[in-house]
């Protein structure tokens, strides 16, 4: 049997639970519906662009380039590149997963993919501006500094937790070669 489709299972639960909850608790249900609708709209505006960007990345960026900047030999500069890539203003975290998967298939090392996902999640540039605004520069910069300091060793641990052949990449439709 193929591995369990988590996404389909989750979707099935949502499809059953949402209408039931909506009919039982009208007021909270409408708030939920409103929130989902807002997110759906937000997604429609950015999701296609992110997918096209990934498609273009797959055909134009050569495997050697990824290996050079993010591969096994990239060392500390590679880690810095991974963190900076993650900080760029792009979509929410779930958009980063397919991108991370493709980076792996193009030869990035696990530690760098871990760093990429982590910095994408919690130290994105536009978010930092909001954090400074609400919690103050001291809080925001301290959190940023500590986060990067803590993530570097954890990324190396993450790499050791993966099987040796993991960097062949999990299954997915992205070509692992040059795409030429």
């Amino acid at each position: 049997m193929r591995r369990l489709r988590w996404d389909l299972a989750a979707l099935a639960v949502v499809v059953v639970a949402f209408p039931l909850l909506f009919l039982t608790y009208r007021e909270r249900g409408s708030r939920a519906l409103e929130a989902s609708w807002k997110y759906l709209q937000e997604m429609l505006f950015i999701f296609p662009a992110v997918l096209v960007l990934m498609g273009l990345f797959a055909v134009w960026v050569r495997r050697e380039t990824v290996v050079k900047f993010l591969g096994k030999e990239s060392g500390l500069p590679g880690m810095v590149v991974a963190v900076l890539l993650g900080m760029l203003p792009t979509g929410p975290l779930y958009m980063a997963f397919p991108l991370a998967s493709m980076l792996l298939r193009k030869g990035a090392r696990v530690a760098n993919v871990f760093l990429f996902l982590s910095s994408w999640a919690c130290i994105k540039l536009p978010q930092e501006l909001v954090e400074i605004q609400f919690l103050g520069a001291r809080f925001a910069l301290l959190r940023l500094g500590f986060t990067v300091a803590v993530l570097l060793p954890l990324a190396l641990i993450a790499e050791r937790l993966m099987p040796a052949n993991f960097e062949e990449g999990p299954e997915g439709p992205w070509p692992s070669g040059n795409g030429c």
Partner: peptide, 23 residues
């Protein structure tokens, strides 16, 4: 192809986020 593969997960996430924010 990626769209077809990701769509169920994305829709599930949108539903769950709505339920959390609403309830």
């Amino acid at each position: 192809n990626a769209l077809k593969r990701l769509l169920p997960g994305v829709l599930a996430v949108i539903g769950v986020i709505g339920l959390i924010l609403g309830f």
